[in-house]
Design a binder for these strands. Structure first.
Length: 343
DNA sequence: ATCAATGATTGGCG
DNA sequence: CGCCAATCATTGAT
């Protein structure tokens, strides 16, 4: 076996690895002329490439031998450097993503809702006390508030326990991977930077999971808010006197039941409700009256009589109490008054 | 449990 | 923006 064939077998053993450098016939020739250390490297590389063809025991033994080789640290350093260059050039682009605006928004909202951040009020008792203290009306709103707060506290608790779980899992997993990589760094070239990058990747993955948690927490809070803020869910019927005032106005202006802004304010004040509630009431009343005039006939007569009586009382003494005729005409279909209450 | 009454909301229109 | 019409969600009576 002359030098030429030895060189060829050496080359085929190296396969596609590092063509540019090791595969260069010149450098091989140089190595051979330089003597023992370079020859060692050639042998080692050959052994490495052959390792997969051997039995497990053999491979294990060879691995051990390689591990103990005096050139191993230097070789690994070089390999690490090469890896660093190639890997960095490939994926160095997507490093350091800026703080996601989406997650910032979620964070801000959770903070604003008091889900994340410092607990304000300790236990549920404190929350209830705070609710009681906050409410202007003693029973009505504070009960709903405490209910709301209880639900919010529930969400908050779930959020925190989940968050803790995620964080724990993340650090556990990170530790595991780091240990694994450190372990492996004895048998394959792994640079500290690589470990760092891996950790960063893991953290990114976990933070995306965290974002999902935050997202769903935000949704839960929104739903809770809408449930409690939606006035339909805490509707109270107006008191008798209020509906009386409203009905009086409605039936005495049946021809044009559209109170002006000032009239609405007046009614609102009289009834102890808001102007928009007055508007709602008239909107509902108009449409419902129109839809089924018959059903409201009785009511119409009642209030017609009532207003007539009032009018009579006002213009009382001196004059005569005259006809209780309904004061309507035009626009709306006039419900004609009949003594027995029928159309 | 069921259902009409009722206050509030929503979407469309002018 | 105010109104109408349809609809929702709760109340209160049965």
């Amino acid at each position: 076996m002359d030098d030429q064939t030895r060189m060829m077998t050496g080359l085929t053993g190296l396969g596609g690895l590092a063509q540019g450098d090791v595969g260069d016939p010149d450098s091989v020739r140089k190595q051979q002329s330089l003597g023992q250390p370079q020859q060692d490297i050639g042998d080692i590389l050959q052994q490495i490439m052959a390792i997969t063809d051997e039995s497990l025991d053999e491979a294990q033994a060879r691995k051990h031998a390689l591990n103990c080789h005096r050139m191993k640290p230097a070789l690994f350093n070089v390999l690490c450097e090469i890896k660093e260059k190639t890997v960095l050039s490939i994926r160095g682009v997507q490093e350091e993503d800026p703080p996601d605006p989406q997650i910032m928004r979620l964070d801000n909202m959770l903070l604003a809702e008091g889900v994340s951040g410092p607990e304000k009020g300790g236990g549920s008792a404190a929350a209830a006390a705070a609710a009681a203290a906050a409410g202007g009306s003693p029973t009505d709103s504070s009960i709903e508030h405490s209910d709301y707060r209880a639900k919010l506290a529930q969400i908050r608790q779930i959020y925190h326990s989940e968050l803790e779980k995620y964080e724990q899992a993340c650090s556990e997993f990170t530790n595991h991977v780091m240990n694994l990589l450190r372990e492996q760094s004895r048998t394959r070239p792994i640079s500290p930077k690589e470990i760092e990058r891996m950790v960063a990747i893991i953290h990114r993955k976990f933070s995306s999971i965290q974002m999902q948690l935050k997202q769903s927490t935000c949704e839960a809070v929104m739903i809770l808010r809408s449930r409690f803020l939606d006035a339909r869910r805490k509707r109270r019927n107006f008191n008798k006197q209020a509906t009386e005032v409203l009905n009086e106005y409605f039936y005495s202006h049946l021809s044009n039941p559209y109170p002006s802004e000032e009239a609405k304010e007046e009614l609102a004040k009289k009834c102890g409700i808001t102007v928009s509630q007055v508007s709602n009431w008239f909107g509902n009343k108009r449409i419902r009256y129109k839809k089924n005039i018959g059903k409201f006939q009785e009511e119409a007569n009642l209030y017609a009589v009532k207003t007539a009586v009032d009018a009579a009382n006002v213009s009382a003494q001196a004059s005569q109490a005259n006809s209780p005729a309904t004061p309507n005409s035009g626009g709306y279909p006039a419900p004609c008054y009949t003594p027995d209450g029928r159309l």
